[in-house]
């Protein structure tokens, strides 16, 4: 085997539904690659140690802290960022955030939205306690916590009733 002669890695991954290829140093995190190499600045950088949740993205359908994933690790995998979730005029969840006053300074909100969508993807009708549990890795210093919980509850109710 060979450990490789250079430290650069070429990564091909599905990012927000598109196949993207980029080359990064081996230690470059997914967070930095998304923001610098791919121009996807909706994913925010704050603690860079997996404590704040601002950099949450979906990797193969699972919420992860992109600061604790190497860009090289996503070769052959699928990543969805906040840009990949968003539609013109906002998703129902994003609109619910606005209706309930959940967006204040806004810096943590893309991460909150990703974690909430991940929760709803496997638990379509979560209780308030389950929402608090599921989102407790996403810090909000404006402390919009109760606003966000209301928004997630309302979205869950609407989605469940629409799907019948």
């Amino acid at each position: 085997m060979s450990v490789g002669t250079g430290s650069l890695v070429t990564v091909t991954a599905t990012i927000n539904g598109e196949t993207r290829t980029f080359t990064v140093p081996g230690h470059r995190t997914l967070l930095d690659a998304l923001r610098s190499e791919l121009g996807l600045t909706g994913t925010k950088s704050s603690c860079t140690e997996g404590e704040c949740g601002a950099c949450t993205v979906m990797l193969d359908g699972h919420a992860v802290n992109s600061c604790l994933v190497l860009a090289a690790e996503v070769d052959g995998h699928e990543v969805v960022t906040i840009e990949g979730l968003s539609v013109d005029g906002g998703t129902d969840l994003q609109q619910a955030f606005l209706e309930h006053g959940a967006v204040q300074c806004g810096f943590c909100i893309p991460g909150q939205v990703m974690s909430a969508e991940y929760l709803l993807s496997h638990n379509p009708d979560p209780s308030v306690e389950e929402i608090r549990d599921a989102l407790s890795g996403n810090l909000c210093r404006c402390a919009s916590y109760n606003r966000i919980v209301e928004a997630v509850r309302q979205t869950a109710e609407k989605r469940v009733s629409t799907r019948g």
Binding site: S86, G90, E99, V103, I109
Partner: peptide, 12 residues
């Protein structure tokens, strides 16, 4: 609703 809220919620 917050002015600039959707931009914040969508990462823009």
């Amino acid at each position: 609703k917050r002015y600039g809220g959707l931009e914040r919620a969508s990462g823009a």
